[in-house]
Amino acid sequence: MSGPRYHRPKRQDQRLVAFECQSCGWVSYPERKRTCKGCSAAPAEYEEVQLQERGEIKTFVVQHYLPDDIETPQPVAIVDVPQVGDGEPARIYGLLAESELDELEVGREVEARFRELFDDGDRPINSFKFAVPRGEK
């Protein structure tokens, strides 16, 4: 079993499960919360929602200087990931993978791909990375 830090949000990270505040509609991902960053409700009532497997790049960078064990260049984005059905998107950080750097732009649609994110020393930690969909460049 992986350490508690990685175990706690495992379901959110592996199933794209998020939580919607029933007062204001703000969506929390990946944290399961009891207070709301949108409307400050405390306690807030949350409903579980399913995120889509596609999102939109709101902004991004391409990191060239990282520790030696991380592959560079490493693009990372802020991605809006819509819910299945109506409601606000989740706004999250997403590592980008399997994409050409010149394909990346604000507004570009990207799809979630389940990948090994990194190794915590004992075992791999898995979650979603985002990539430009194949055949839609």
Binding site: R5, L66, P67, I70, Q74, Y93, G94, L95, L117, F118
Partner: peptide
């Protein structure tokens, strides 16, 4: 980048 890669997702 390393210790907090999970939550910050590698954001320096």
């Amino acid at each position: 980048a390393v210790e907090r890669l999970w939550r910050g997702r590698g954001v320096t």
